[in-house]
């Protein structure tokens, strides 16, 4: 092969068909929005049933996580997510899916090093950096306010 330039080739490759981002954006907006509406519905209902605001928020998160886990187990969520993309990944539903799906996948490797270890393979970084940033956020808050709430 005489004529081959890596740079030109990479330029040519970069011109290839990209993901249809407008379509993906609309899907993500609609599905993500629908999940938020559902969440709001659960929150309002829980408050109407007499739960305090914070507890009602907890109930909302738990319900959405449960639904996402259930739909992942039934093999439905990945089919919705295929179209919805960020619409299902960004809300708490995506986090639940990221934990449940490897837990299902790696059960053949046993409960300790299979399910137990692998279930955090995708969501692990979110937990690590989520906790780290909340600690840093807390320290900054403490330094600014001097510990007064």
């Amino acid at each position: 092969m005489q004529h081959f330039s890596k740079k030109e080739y990479q330029k040519q490759v970069s011109k290839q068909e990209k993901s249809p981002w407008i379509k993906n954006l609309i899907w993500a907006y609609c599905v993500g929005g629908a999940i938020c509406v559902l969440g709001q519905g659960i929150l309002t209902y829980a408050k109407q049933m007499g739960l305090p605001k914070e507890d009602a928020g907890c109930v909302t998160s738990i319900t959405l996580i449960f639904l996402s886990g259930l739909l992942t187990g039934l093999g439905v969520l990945d089919k919705i997510a295929k179209h919805a993309g960020a619409g299902t990944i960004v809300p708490i539903t995506g986090f639940a899916n990221a934990i449940v799906s490897p837990a299902m996948e790696f059960k053949n490797e046993g409960f300790i090093l299979g399910v137990g270890a692998k279930m955090f393979v995708i969501a692990g970084p979110v937990i690590v950096y989520g906790i780290c940033s909340s600690v840093i956020g807390g320290l900054i808050y403490y330094l600014i306010t001097g510990g007064r709430l």
Binding site: K18, L77, D78, K82, I89, N97, S101, E105, I122
Partner: peptide, 17 residues
């Protein structure tokens, strides 16, 4: 999939390529 990419039930999107 499970060796090179993601678990089967993980909700991700695949690009056209």
């Amino acid at each position: 999939e499970r060796q090179f990419r993601f678990p089967l039930e993980y909700g991700g999107q695949r690009p056209p390529t």
